[in-house]
C-alpha cells in the first residue's frame, strides 16, 4: 500500500475504535461530548510511558487504556447524575479541563507535546479496530447489551424491571472511556507524536457526530459513521476540484482553474449533518435496516401502528 493509503487506513481504524468508545455511552442515552479528553488521556499516558520509561508499545497502549478507563469511571460516578444538556456540558467541560491541565504540565511537555519513539505499523490499529468492533457486537448481544438498550429507550421502565440503571450507565461510560483511551494510545504510536492542540473540542464534536449519524441503535452505527465521515473528506479531496472544473467549464470558463478552498470539505460535511438530521435523525443504520428482509406477521402490523 502507498503511504497515503496506509495513513488513511490507520486514521480510519483509530476513528473506529474511538467511535465505539463514544458509542457505548450514547447507547445508554448519555451523550459524551468529551471524547477528546479521554483520547488525550490514553495518548499522553502511552506517550509518557514510552518516552520516559521506555516501555514497549503493547504495554503503553494497555496502560493508556486502563488510565482512561479508570479516570472515566471516576468521572462517571458524579457526572452521570446529570442528564440531557447538563451531561453534554459536563463531559465537554471535562475534556477542556484535561486539555488545560496537560497544557500546563511540564512533565507532559505542555504546549510542545511529546515525541513517541516506538512506532507501530498500520496493521496494529486495524487489528485493534476489528477486535473492538467484535467486542462491542458481542457486548450488545449479551444480557448487558439488553440492559443498555432498555436504559436508552426508557430508564424508568428499565429501573422498574430490575435493571441496575446507574450501574449499567457507569459501566458503559467507563468502558467507552477505556476504548477512547485505547484509540489515543494507538494514535500516539502510529503518528509518533502527541500535542494537546490536536485533542480539541472539534475532535469531540466529530466523533460524537460519527456515532449519531451512523446510528446509535445498533453496533453497526459507529463503524458506518466513522468510515463514512473519515472517507468522505478524503473522497472530496479529489471530487471537489473535479466538480468545480465541471461547473466552471459548463459556464464557459476555460484555462487554468484553481482548486477550491480546503474549507469546502467541511461545508459539505456540515451540510450533510444538517440534511441527515432533517431526513433521517435516527442515523444511517437502524434496527429496521436489518428487520427489512424478515417476514412480519400481518397481525402485528396494525398493533404497531396503533401504539404509535
Amino acid at each position: 500500500m502507498s503511504g497515503y493509503w496506509t495513513g488513511i487506513v490507520t486514521i480510519l481504524a483509530i476513528n473506529v475504535v474511538f467511535a465505539y468508545g463514544i458509542y457505548l455511552a450514547v447507547a445508554t442515552g448519555q451523550l459524551n461530548l468529551g471524547g477528546a479528553g479521554f483520547q488525550a488521556l490514553g495518548a499522553y499516558a502511552a506517550a509518557w510511558l514510552c518516552f520516559e520509561l521506555d516501555w514497549s508499545p503493547a504495554w503503553t497502549i494497555a496502560a493508556g487504556t486502563v488510565v482512561a478507563g479508570v479516570i472515566g469511571m471516576g468521572i462517571a460516578i458524579p457526572i452521570l447524575r446529570l442528564k440531557g444538556v447538563y451531561l453534554v456540558l459536563g463531559t465537554f467541560a471535562f475534556a477542556e479541563v484535561v486539555a488545560g491541565l496537560i497544557l500546563n504540565s511540564e512533565t507532559l511537555g505542555g504546549a510542545m507535546g511529546l515525541p513517541v519513539p516506538a512506532y507501530i505499523e498500520w496493521q496494529v490499529p486495524v487489528a485493534a479496530a476489528v477486535a473492538c468492533a467484535l467486542l462491542v457486537f458481542y457486548l450488545m448481544a449479551t444480557r448487558f447489551g439488553l440492559a443498555v438498550r432498555s436504559v436508552h429507550d426508557d430508564d424508568v421502565v428499565a429501573d422498574l424491571m430490575g435493571v441496575n440503571v446507574r450501574g449499567v450507565r457507569v459501566a458503559a461510560f467507563a468502558l467507552g472511556a477505556a476504548l477512547a483511551g485505547l484509540s489515543g494510545g494507538l494514535y500516539a504510536h502510529a503518528f509518533s507524536y502527541v500535542e494537546i492542540q490536536g485533542f480539541n473540542a472539534s475532535l469531540s464534536i466529530y466523533v460524537l457526530l460519527y456515532v449519531l449519524l451512523g446510528g446509535a441503535q445498533t453496533a453497526w452505527g459507529p463503524l458506518v459513521g466513522a468510515a463514512f465521515f473519515t472517507l468522505l473528506p478524503e473522497a472530496m479531496r479529489s471530487f471537489l476540484p473535479a466538480a468545480k472544473e465541471a461547473i466552471w467549464t459548463a459556464f464557459g470558463v476555460t484555462g487554468d482553474i484553481s482548486p477550491p478552498d480546503e474549507s469546502w470539505r467541511f461545508v459539505v460535511l456540515g451540510a450533510a449533518v444538517i440534511a441527515m438530521m432533517v431526513f433521517r435523525p435516527e442515523g444511517l443504520v437502524t434496527r429496521d435496516t436489518f428487520a427489512f428482509p424478515r417476514r412480519r406477521s400481518p397481525a402485528a402490523a396494525p398493533t404497531r401502528e396503533a401504539a404509535e
Partner: peptide, 10 residues
Amino acid sequence: LVSSLGFLLV
C-alpha cells in the same frame, strides 16, 4: 444540537 453543530461547520 447536532444540526446546530452542522451549522457551526458550514
